[in-house]
Design a binder for these strands. Structure first.
Lengths: 197, 197
DNA sequence: TAATCGACCAAATTGGTTTTTCGGTCGAAC
DNA sequence: GTTCGACCGAAAAACCAATTTGGTCGATTA
């Protein structure tokens, strides 16, 4: 994975990784630039040669994690053939992925960071990306005659919203085989509805 | 509606209504007992003859509003015959009802009040009530052979969660005929699923 | 030219003190 | 039973000095 091209950004990478650990442990506010610099074995001024602000570093880390989750989800989706399976893969990958990057991604839900506009930007960006991903799957499903949906946009939005709401009470708390079975049941509601036939 | 029995609680009612307006406008924290007393044309000490604390007043107001919403929803449900129509009536009544009591009910979502245990109690109480209502409808629907659901508890919970998530972006913002049509589409997903047949 | 850093600054934060406000009590009066 | 003025103690607000800290700059290194 690592090529020689990365060498140029070597220091940036070191700074980012150092900062990542400290941010994860102590949060954005308390972490100081001096601490980051110290962890990276650099003078504080040197950090500013690579990043223009503390926010900038944090932003880079969060965005990187968001990208990693996106990639993991995309990979899971592409591995499936039918749209139905893609939806299922999406939910599963999302659930498992979020557990991994609890550290910084949880920052999106941190009340203190609520007011930082740059975090809000990341949130909005990731939210729309998420909706678009689902929308894409639904659209393909409809075109292939696999799905039948009145309003794709609305359905995609509702699905993401519901997923986000269920995320914490269902997935985060206990993430095991039993949990998987439970959301399997919910997916069946989505696929087949609750009306008997 | 008003009977002579109410006369005894006349002053309580006055205090409650005065407080309600002030709380709605300025929120729980900023509102002072003196202001409430002044609006009720009473001395501050007099208030304590009817309510034991500021929290107590607020609690009474919020619980009253919650009860009103519950009653409105129950009425709407009972007016319908089939379980499917009951679900639809529930969503509609909930959407319209919440718009009415934006004032204090919004307190449930106020970040400042998050930490007050008495508010948490109201929230939990209303949440479980809501889930139970839906659960009741679903259960009856299944028993009558109208619905077919694997896990009623989970489905009810998911439905309420989704509804709560969609509440703000869909309903509150623009509450009109077009909105009704939109969630009609979502209800169809719930009823019939997205799989084509 | 790219990278590093010590010295420095202004703004924000912190810690501690004082003042004010406010929820709540009490006893008296009606 | 109801009302209220006077009062209390704890919490919040206001204030201020000391310190921290995000960020800049010029010089130095390589």
């Amino acid at each position: 994975m690592e090529t020689t091209i990365d060498i140029k950004d070597d220091v940036s990478e070191i700074i980012l990784n150092s900062a990542k650990t400290i941010f994860a442990r102590y949060g954005f506010k308390i972490t100081t630039m001096d601490e980051i610099a110290q962890a990276a074995r650099k003078g504080k001024s040197s950090i500013y040669h690579y990043f223009k602000s503390k926010e900038d570093i944090f932003k880079a880390i969060v965005e990187k994690e968001a990208d990693e989750l996106s990639a993991a989800i995309a990979k899971a989706i592409n591995a499936e053939t039918t749209s139905k399976k893609k939806i299922r893969a999406y939910v599963l990958a999302r659930m498992k992925g979020i557990n991994n990057l609890t550290n910084l991604y949880s920052a999106l839900k941190d009340e203190y960071l609520e007011h930082y506009s740059f975090i809000e930007n990341v949130r909005v960006k990731y939210d729309t990306e998420e909706v678009n991903t689902i929308k894409g799957i639904l659209k393909t499903g409809v075109e292939d005659g696999e799905f039948k949906i009145e309003d794709i946009n609305l359905t995609a939005f509702a699905l993401v919203t519901a997923l986000k709401g269920l995320e914490y009470p269902l997935f985060i708390k206990n993430n095991n085989a039993k949990t998987e079975k439970r959301f399997e049941g919910l997916l069946n509601v989505l696929f087949y509805g609750i009306i008997a036939r």
